[in-house]
């Protein structure tokens, strides 16, 4: 896939009206409205979706928000990029 997502200029968002999310103990179920597909996700996917619910932001900015807001001490840019990629593939996060 090549949406240029490693490119620092790409900005990401996850409009909250695009999906529904329900916490189920340690997991969360996410229903993506455009595809009708249900994704069962673990942390930090729900946190990423929540952080991207407002204005679009770059991957670096997202990492910073996650570190501050959710106290993700061991936030790893590579792992974050992988999660972001999965959410992009699913259509839950859009790149612009």
């Amino acid at each position: 896939m090549s949406d240029g997502r490693s490119d620092g200029a790409t900005r990401f968002s996850a409009p909250p009206d695009g999906y529904r999310i329900v916490a189920l103990d340690e997991l969360s179920a996410v229903y993506h409205r455009a595809s009708g597909i249900t994704h069962v996700v673990a942390s930090p996917a729900p946190e990423i979706l929540d952080a991207l619910s407002g204005p679009a932001m770059s991957a670096d900015a997202l990492l910073m928000v996650l570190t501050i807001r959710y106290d993700l001490a061991d936030a790893d840019p590579a792992a974050l990029a992988a999660r972001l990629d999965e959410l992009l593939m699913a259509g839950l996060v859009v790149a612009q």
Binding site: V22, L24, E26, L27, T38, V40
Partner: peptide, 25 residues
């Protein structure tokens, strides 16, 4: 746990996908 139950129930349902968001809720 609720997450495990949810996954097993989606597999035990024949019309979960067909119902869309109503099924999810």
């Amino acid at each position: 746990a609720a997450g495990e139950a949810f996954v097993r129930l989606t597999q035990a349902s024949t019309n979960y996908v067909a119902l869309g968001e109503r099924g999810f809720d």
